[in-house]
Simulated scan of single mutants.
Amino acid sequence: MKNIKAIGLIFLALLFGLAAAVYATGWISRQSGIASNKVVVAAVDIDLGSRVNAQMLSTVDWPSGSVPNGSFSDIKALNDRVVKVGVLRGEALMEGKLAPVGTQGGLSAVIASGKRAMTVRVNDVVGVAGFALPGNYVDVMVNAQQDKGRGEDALQISKTVLEKVLVLAVAQEANRDDTKPKVVSAVTLELSLEDSEKLDLARSVGTLSLVLRNQMDKTTVATLGITKGQLFGEKKDIVPVSTAAAPAHPRVRLAGPATPRASECVEVIQHAGRSLTCF
């Protein structure tokens, strides 16, 4: 009786094993039947602004139904192209991640069309303790003396002059994948030409500070700035309005009705007659 049970268990085990083998064979055959295309991927991590060569790339089989738009199948088509974003190992190279054909490598390939790159000097405090990293956005604040009129004291003011400015690089590093804070002495910002002029004037008249902001926050806030008097709650000085004494107006005497002048008469004697003429 025991032998019959053992034989039955062995038979069931063989049956289940055979079924599993058949299923695995069918699954493998189905997988091998899926159409695929060659797609160029990064063989190593590629930093933004780098010029691509064949040693950085490789090809893999990619299911035809999910090939990324703008991808490449030939490594030669990517020779000497420049990436404008960081590309991780195994990530597909796509046209949207590349600078236009003929672009030279370096930071200039990363600057958006119509923008400029400008570097400002910072320290551990001005640079937000090193947390202003490439790819982050900052506001630029200036603390300066506002000119007043003659005989009046200069007014110290802090004012936000630029908002949502992209950090392109810190020192000589532009890698946006690094999240470790770095205390550096210079930060490169991406600005429009008009904002570049504002920043150049701001750093010449006062002290700059970078204010780190949320990357998803696109709200702009217009402020009037704050003065030292407003910071400490002092009342704004009211300049008295000088009133000059009005010039005395001469008294004008109104002329009364004119007194009629006495008439003058002349008596004219002619021949035997007389006449009186008055005027």
Rank of each mutant, 00 (worst) to 15 (best):
K2D: 15
I4T: 15
G8M: 14
A13P: 05
A13L: 12
L14G: 14
G17A: 13
A19H: 02
G26Q: 09
S29L: 15
S36F: 13
V40K: 13
V41K: 15
V41Y: 13
A42R: 13
A43Y: 12
I46D: 13
L48A: 15
L48K: 09
A54I: 08
A54F: 11
T59M: 06
P63C: 12
G70L: 06
A77T: 12
V82E: 06
E95C: 00
L98T: 03
G102Q: 11
Q104I: 02
G105N: 02
V110H: 02
A117E: 02
M118G: 08
M118Q: 05
R121H: 06
L133C: 03
G135E: 04
V138K: 04
Q145S: 06
Q146F: 09
G149S: 07
E152Q: 01
Q156P: 05
V161C: 00
V161W: 00
K164V: 00
A171N: 04
Q172N: 08
Q172D: 14
E173Y: 09
D178E: 10
D178C: 07
T179P: 00
K180E: 14
K180L: 09
V183L: 05
V184Y: 06
V184K: 06
V187W: 08
V187Y: 09
S196Q: 03
S204P: 03
G206N: 01
G206H: 08
T207W: 01
Q215F: 15
T219W: 01
T219M: 09
T227S: 01
T227W: 00
G233I: 07
K236D: 10
I238D: 08
P240S: 08
P240Q: 13
V241M: 09
A245S: 15
H249A: 15
R251E: 15
A255S: 12
A258P: 11
S263W: 02
R274Q: 14
T277L: 12
F279W: 04
